[in-house]
């Protein structure tokens, strides 16, 4: 695998992300590939703050801040305007968190995907409403503490499978990526850039603030999630053909990923074993899907 090179550094100094923010890295990597001919549509999310307050802005591309649930449809509108003006080369990037994607923005995203509007939609997933102070979203995993799922009453539901929801829309390209694997991440952004229609990237971004983890562990945690198969890296083409990007065999124990995080501190070994079992099952079901229709 070739080494990642930063050719387009479009996130300048002076962003106001928390120390160890995975989402800040994700933006750097994505813009590195998309380059300066990119328009960003930014709904309510951590990044609506990270850009810094007026008159500063750490992004060196046009940015339009919009309402929580409107990333996809505003992006569709921007694309339509560019099209009528004969511009088919500018990238239109909707950049939303997991809340703005899995929850409140899902309807607009589904609409854009069903129409196959020509946009790149990135969900940077830190698994809760972090900007508002760590409340659970439907991307929060089972067992996690958040301020609305306290340790005494931790989240009792599984994380929503957003990738399969997007696959059901038969969009031309969907992929998961991790900030711990920048080469793989950027290769996927390249593939998304060079595809037309709705392209969806699900980027796993640890959040030290919300995960109650040490800021210097962000990359390690992102890697542990991949290596334990808790967050598999794969691609879906046309909602049908699937390809595994990385097979961590043998996988690391899920406990290696869970243990360093304060949000899982309350779980006993039996509960962590239950997470391990679930991860194993999910992995097998993903492998079956890939075997049935490999890319």
């Amino acid at each position: 695998m070739k080494r990642a090179r930063m050719e387009n550094e479009l996130v300048s100094k002076g962003h106001v992300a928390c120390p160890g923010c995975g989402a800040a890295l994700a933006m750097r990597y994505v813009l590195n590939v998309l380059g300066p001919k990119t328009i960003i549509v930014l709904p309510a999310c951590c990044w609506s703050v990270i850009t810094n307050r007026h008159p500063e802005c750490c992004l060196e591309v046009p940015v339009f801040h919009t309402a929580f649930e409107t990333a996809a449809c505003v992006a569709s509108g921007v694309r339509a305007a560019l099209e009528v003006k004969g511009d088919n080369s500018t990238n239109v990037l909707a950049w939303a968190g997991d809340g703005g994607t899995f929850d409140i923005g899902l309807q607009a995203l589904s609409g854009a995907a069903e129409r196959n509007d020509d946009i790149i939609y990135v969900c940077y997933d830190n698994e809760a409403y972090m900007n508002t102070g760590v409340q659970r979203s439907s991307a929060t995993p089972w067992g996690a503490w958040t301020t609305t799922t306290p340790a005494t009453h931790f989240k009792g539901q599984e994380k929503k499978n957003i990738m399969e929801i997007m696959a059901a829309h038969r969009i031309p390209y969907a992929a998961t990526a991790s900030i711990s694997m920048p080469e793989d991440l950027m290769a996927k952004v390249e593939r998304a850039r060079d595809t037309r229609g709705t392209r969806f990237l699900h980027i796993f971004c640890p959040c030290p603030t919300g995960w109650r983890s040490s800021p210097d562990l962000t990359i390690e945690l992102a890697r542990a999630a991949v290596e334990s198969r808790a967050f598999p890296l794969y691609e879906i083409f046309d909602g049908a053909k699937r390809r595994l990007s990385l097979d961590p065999a043998p996988p690391a124990p899920v406990a290696d990923y869970i243990r360093p995080q304060g949000r899982f501190r309350h779980l006993d070994s039996e509960q962590i074993e239950a997470i391990q079992k679930r991860v194993d099952e999910e992995w097998l079901s993903l492998l079956r899907l890939i075997e049935n229709n490999p890319a």
Partner: peptide, 13 residues
Amino acid sequence: HSALACCMGASMA
């Protein structure tokens, strides 16, 4: 909701 959001994006562009 998306109709107006879409118009807003297009108008901004």
